[in-house]
């Protein structure tokens, strides 16, 4: 089933990568998630997810330049692959189909 389904957190990370575009590297992703998802996100978790997404072929990465605040180490930037983009689109359309099937009555009573 690898590569076919997206977990909730995986989806969030993919979206963040897409949103950050050229600035998508691990620490920035963590910060962005903290801001928008309003929950404390650990670097370790994001790291593991990025690694998994890359294994699934949904993102690709390249090393950037070394900087001083990183102790002379390079950033690893992530980008969505075509497979990644289509996975996002697929998830979104699936959700919308499900949303559309809910009669509007339900929302009123809630």
């Amino acid at each position: 089933m690898k590569g076919t389904n997206l977990g909730e957190f995986e989806e969030l990370v993919l979206l963040t990568i897409a949103a950050l575009r050229a600035e998508a590297y691990s620490v920035a992703i963590v910060d962005e998630l903290c801001n928008y998802a309003q929950r404390s996100v650990k670097l370790g978790v994001v790291h593991a997810v990025l690694n998994r997404l890359e294994e699934k072929g949904l993102v690709k990465s390249y090393l950037g330049e070394a900087t001083k605040e990183r102790g002379g180490k390079a950033k690893r930037f992530y980008q969505l692959t075509t497979a990644g983009k289509s996975a996002l689109v697929r998830t979104r359309s699936m959700r919308e189909q499900l949303y559309n099937r809910i009669p509007s009555l339900v929302w009123k009573h809630a």
């Binding site: 691990s26 620490v27 670097l43 690694n51 090393l63 605040e69 990183r70 102790g71 180490k73 690893r76």
Partner: peptide
Amino acid sequence: QLAEDLLGDLHEYFQ
């Protein structure tokens, strides 16, 4: 291949 950016990330958090 992971060590490079992991060390970098940790360093950034360290700062």
